[in-house]
Design a protein around this nucleic acid. Structure first.
Lengths: 334, 334
DNA sequence: CTTGCATATGTAAACGTTTACATAAATTGT
DNA sequence: ACAATTTATGTAAACGTTTACATATGCAAG
């Protein structure tokens, strides 16, 4: 592979000049520029961005750490991050934690060794040591799907408590009193925990007694949703509605309910969370809390680059989520 | 940030020794090793993998280029790639082309400048100039979701023709004679084209006349599927079954049909392609051609690393796909 | 104790850029 | 045509590792 030096020799100029035609062509006279570009063609010169990163100490690369790319909501925000990064000529290294903290830790370390300029993290434990170290060492990063409203880490997220409250409120208003919740494991995601808080507060506010049997914690999967709901429906006093802390769980719940012979939504109302694209394409269409995943990713990337380039102060952005009422929820029977 | 040199000074050894305790600790005596690790702690030494990559000329990074991470089937193979890479201590830079050839080209270039060790590409145009250049310059890469059975590029894929044939055959065997196809645009994906070939050959083999009005080409999306099928169903002689060239299209078709008041599957049988996770969670459950996306990704990554490390000859791997019969297909009415 | 050998450590160049600074060349005004 | 100024180009060091090679150290056998 040929280097800048080869090009320089061939063109009869110095390496500095070649570097200049690459990075600021307007500063080199037309004639020389032509000589140089011609020389580059001739020796099929390929720029080495790694070498550049090495000297300038910026790699023009950021790391994106998410639980799993297989959840459409994370895929969506990943697109947002990538699109913004692409526009800014930045590359994105993607890593999945599968909700495992050690994996998150090792990813952070590896990516930092790779000299990424910053990190966007959907953390499994935003209050934990990993994030704290990052903050202490003043490494640029932003939290995505964050639950924090303030602090010394930049973050973008939605109000999960509010989301949970709204979802539950919708069910209560429809007349439901036995409302179950199928949540992602709290130990794995504080988002789920906040959503549950909203749920709990809402039923309390409406004078409905809390029944801990109506809370299931499971992994964020279709099967998790299905199995949890089936168990719940087997109780002597089954719920007439369930709030699921993401759409996968909700879709799974739909299936579980049907496998038990229920009609939807008459026999069971279901609310999801996220509003993944497929949510409006199933029957009944899924009532859900929409969160602006793509925008979140885009904004997160924007914030990170700001933080990298201008050393901005940490900010926490709370985006609006909204209840999308579709066909999967209806009044309580009878 | 401290460097190897700082550590070396502090420990009273040479940089070479420090480098050795990092890369091959067994070659340095216990005492020195301890001095060094202690010094590393003290100055909070952080390894610089970029600098390493610069000198060793390998970045331990590969690029993964896909049409869009928002299609679950690509998300699935991406997981496969990442899991294998992770296991091999390799990072993955992800890029979306959104089925645009120029985007593919610019991604390939940028990633090569970033000195990725190799590329995994789900190409929009595997016979085009981009791939040819890569081959000519002997750059390590493997094609994913490839349609090619042989050639001088490594590739892994399935037999899309066979998939299309099987899907159609299933419908024919059920008694359908007016079978539509909702395909992804041929100009954008030769996979879709191969699937259509299978479809065409199959109906021919069964003596069914080909009706070009029963072919829709659209973008690979839920709305694309919905709109195409609605148009088709508005014909004087509408199809009684449709084969969709991916599951998103099929799910969209389901919705479209229902919006027209049809009952599924009685009024319209639908076959998809991919078997994305949600396919078995909708009602009716989607009959589809399953392709082993995760395995494909994993295998692609494995192949690529082999190619990088051992300069292996190009190989083409054809994985098995299979027809998964579920509830979305049934006999022709009457 | 030596000698010889194996093993551990040190030396210094190399990797391909960028960039501060120095110098040379072109341009302007007189 | 010359000085003064502006603009273009060259020089060389720096970035943080690795690694071939040279040297030093430890150890075993005589």
């Amino acid at each position: 592979m040929s280097t800048i030096l080869d090009v320089a020799k061939l063109a009869g100029v110095s390496t500095a000049t070649v570097s200049r035609v690459i990075n600021s062509p307007e500063t080199v006279r037309g004639g020389t520029r032509k000589k140089v570009t011609r020389a580059m063609k001739i020796c099929n010169y390929k720029y080495n961005a790694l070498a550049r990163g090495f000297v300038t100490k910026q790699s023009d690369t950021i790391g994106l750490i998410i639980p799993t790319i297989n959840n459409p909501v994370f895929a969506e925000s990943t697109s947002g991050v990538q699109d913004y990064a692409d526009q800014q000529k930045i590359q994105v290294i993607l890593g999945n934690t599968y909700y495992r903290n050690e994996q998150e830790e090792s990813l952070v370390q590896t990516l930092r060794e790779k000299q990424v300029d910053g990190l966007i993290i959907t953390s499994t434990n935003p209050k934990g040591a990993i994030i704290k170290t990052l903050t202490d060492e003043n490494f640029p990063f932003v939290l995505l799907y964050s639950t924090v409203k303030k602090g010394d880490a930049s973050a973008v997220g939605i109000d999960n408590y509010q989301g949970g409250y709204r979802a539950t409120d919708h069910l209560v208003k429809l007349g439901h009193e036995r409302i179950g919740m199928v949540a992602g494991s709290f130990s794995i995601s504080d988002r789920s925990f906040h959503r549950w808080h909203g749920y709990r507060q809402c039923i309390k506010d409406h004078g409905i007694a809390y029944d801990k049997d109506l809370l299931a914690q499971t992994d964020y999967s279709l099967t998790g949703g299905r199995d949890s709901v089936k168990k719940m429906l087997s109780y002597k006093k089954p719920p007439t509605a369930v709030f699921c802390s993401n759409d996968f769980l909700a879709l799974g719940a739909m299936k579980g309910a049907r496998e038990l012979g229920l009609n939807l939504p008459q026999d069971l109302s279901i609310v999801g969370f996220d509003d993944i694209p497929i949510a409006s394409y199933v029957i009944p269409e899924l009532t859900t809390i929409r969160q602006p995943a793509y925008e979140m990713g885009k904004l997160g990337a924007k914030l990170l680059l700001q933080c990298i380039r201008e050393q901005t102060k940490p900010v926490q952005l709370m985006l609006e989520s909204s209840l999308i009422i579709r066909g999967s929820t209806t009044g309580v029977p009878g």
